[in-house]
Every structure is written in C-alpha cells, then in structure tokens.
C-alpha cells in the first residue's frame, strides 16, 4: 500500500556570509551545507495497518511524511503509494490520501466549516448524494453539528481538529496520514480523537500512519511502530516486540540523610544517571531486579530519607536505546 524504497532527502543550505554585502555574497556563493534530513530509509505499510511513526524533533519524521504525500521530492529513492509515484502522479495519488497536519488547518480559515466541505466536494469531483451521506455519517461520528456553521477561526483546537479530520475523510481515501493530530489538545479531546482514529482503522478499514510525540497515542492505537532517529530507521516492528526489547525500565530517585557512599564495584544491573550531594538517581530494569532488592542494596549506601519512582517516557527510552544506529542495523530489514 505504502512503499518507501531507500528514500533520502538532503537539504542544501547556503552558507551565510558575514561582513559587508553579506546578502549579495550569500546569493552568489556556491558554498552549501548539506543537511541530510533523511539518510536512507525503507519501509512498507500494508493495507489495514495502523503504524506509529515516532522519533525526536528533527529526526526526519515530517520530511518523510512530506515525501510520502508528494510535497517534497526525495533526493534519492522512490515512494510508491498504491503503486503510484506521488511526485509524478501527484493529483492521482492525493485522491487516495487523507492528510491532517495537527499544526496547520487545511480548512478555509474565515469560512464556516460547511463551506470547506462544499469546496472539497467540487474539488474532488465527488458525487453530491454520496458525499452528503458520508458527511452525515461523519457529523455523527465527530459531533460536527455543534460547530458546522461556525467560521473555522472561531473553533476551539479540539473542534478544529475534528473538522480537519472530517475534511480529510470526505473523499473516502484509503490511506490516512496524521501528523501530530493530538498536539496541544486537552485530555478529553485527546481521548475523543484517539477513539475516532481507532474506529477509522478498525471499522472503516483505513490504513493509518500516525506521527506523534504522545506515547499514549502509540500505545493505545498502533500495532506497529517505526522509530526514526537522525534520519535513519532504528526500529521497525510491533509494539509488544518493542516492549520486550526495552523491558520495564524504571527510574528511582533516592535522597539520603546526609552523606552516602556508592560502592566502588560497578553493579551491572543498575545505572547511575545523576548524583548530587544527598540524592542519587538510578535506572534499573524490573525484568531483572525487584524494587525491594534495589532498596535493600541502597540501604547499605546511607540512611534513606525519601524515594521516588518513575517510569520513563517510552520516547526517551527509545531515543536512549537507539542512539547508536549501528546497534540495530538488523531492524532496518523490512517485514
């Protein structure tokens, strides 16, 4: 359904000159810094999949999505969406795509929501009757009736997102790209959007690619996850597999009364993350050790005053584990 074959994207950034006439000299200079936003990635997404696409800021997520949708041309490699190349046949490909950018609405900002849908109906040359039917379905699903006659600029973020999602579904696309659809939403709105995405995938059989920073989105929605870091795929497998790989990392912050001593012999199941005069932060894996054992051990270091336990964000963990791309070369192999 979606195929990315060894795609690369390099941005040429002109070196900005300093000093006199810097503007003009920059204009005519041939010096560039080449920034490799995406280094060489390949993956396949099958029909009906719900794939999470995650990675830190600047890892190349948006660049990838933009290459998949035909906005950016890959420097190397090829994208196929339902067998079509989105750069050569953009107008055909986008009929199969529903795209939502969380940061940017695609509705007509100053017009009532319903006007945008009317325009899209003409734009995609949709059958009037069928579209009406779909819209009433979507209205029910998304609760659009509350604000369908309100100008987009007056909507709350949650409403706007629902309106945007409906717009992306109007032409009944097979594939959905959601770029951070829950960004900035409150807990309730997030929950609503998540429920909706689930319905789209499970009941309406849409193939979904979701980028997000919200690990709850990933845990609750995605079957598969692709992790990108520094322009390369560092993980591409199912969520349970990811959990297995990472284990159950736990962070424990302990403060001592006064001074404390850490043993000189390094314990290979405990990692010290941070140490101050009276506190220490360690990380261990609950697969390997029980919390009580850790505490028992630490009692020998000094008199414990307080403890605080934390499960680190999945994203942080992923980042940490895959910081060296070499370590996971085998996960580059596409299923």
């Amino acid at each position: 359904m979606i195929e990315a074959r060894q795609i690369q994207k390099q941005f040429k950034i002109p070196v900005v000159k300093k000093g006199r006439f810097s503007g003009i000299r920059t204009l005519f200079s041939r010096e560039y810094i080449i920034k490799e936003a995406v280094k060489e990635i390949s993956f396949t997404i099958k029909e009906g999949d719900f794939v999470g696409y995650i990675g830190p800021n600047g890892a190349g997520k948006s660049t990838t999505i933009k290459m998949l949708t035909g906005i950016l041309h890959p420097t190397q490699g090829e994208v196929k969406i339902m067998g079509l190349n989105p750069h050569k046949e953009r107008r055909k490909v986008v009929r199969h795509l529903g795209v939502v950018f969380g940061q940017r609405t695609q509705l007509w900002w100053d017009l009532p929501v319903i006007d945008s849908y009317d325009i899209l109906t003409v734009m995609y040359k949709l059958d009037k009757k069928e579209t009406e039917k779909r819209l009433s379905q979507l209205t029910e699903l998304l609760g659009l009736h509350e604000f369908i006659h309100t100008p987009v600029r007056k909507l709350s973020l949650g409403q706007r997102m629902r309106a945007d999602i409906a717009a992306s579904l109007l032409h009944d696309p097979e594939i959905l790209f959601f770029d951070e659809p829950t960004i900035g939403l409150d807990v309730i709105a997030k929950k609503k959007i998540r429920g909706l995405l689930k319905t789209l995938n499970k009941e309406m059989k849409k193939t979904v690619l979701l980028t997000t920073h919200d690990m709850d989105d990933i845990e609750q929605l995605c079957e598969k996850v692709i992790v990108i870091n520094d322009g390369q795929i560092v993980y591409n497998d199912s969520i349970p597999q990811l959990r297995n790989d990472i284990g159950l990392p736990t962070i424990m912050k302990v403060s001592f009364v006064g001074d404390f001593q850490t043993p000189t012999i390094h314990h290979n199941m405990i990692q010290i993350i941070e140490r101050t005069n009276s506190t220490i932060t360690i990380q261990y894996n609950r697969h390997q050790m029980k919390a009580m054992d850790v505490l028992n051990m630490m009692q020998n270091w000094g008199e414990i005053e307080d403890i605080h336990m934390d499960e680190p964000q999945l994203e942080e963990m992923i980042q940490e584990i895959y910081q060296t791309p070499e370590a996971s070369k085998e996960s580059l192999v596409v299923s």
Partner: peptide, 13 residues
Amino acid sequence: SGDLDSFFIRPIP
C-alpha cells in the same frame, strides 16, 4: 511560512 504544503495534497494544480 511553509503554507504551500497544503496546496500539494489537493487534486488540482
């Protein structure tokens, strides 16, 4: 602004 992005995902020139 990058607003040109959204023009790309519509099936018109």
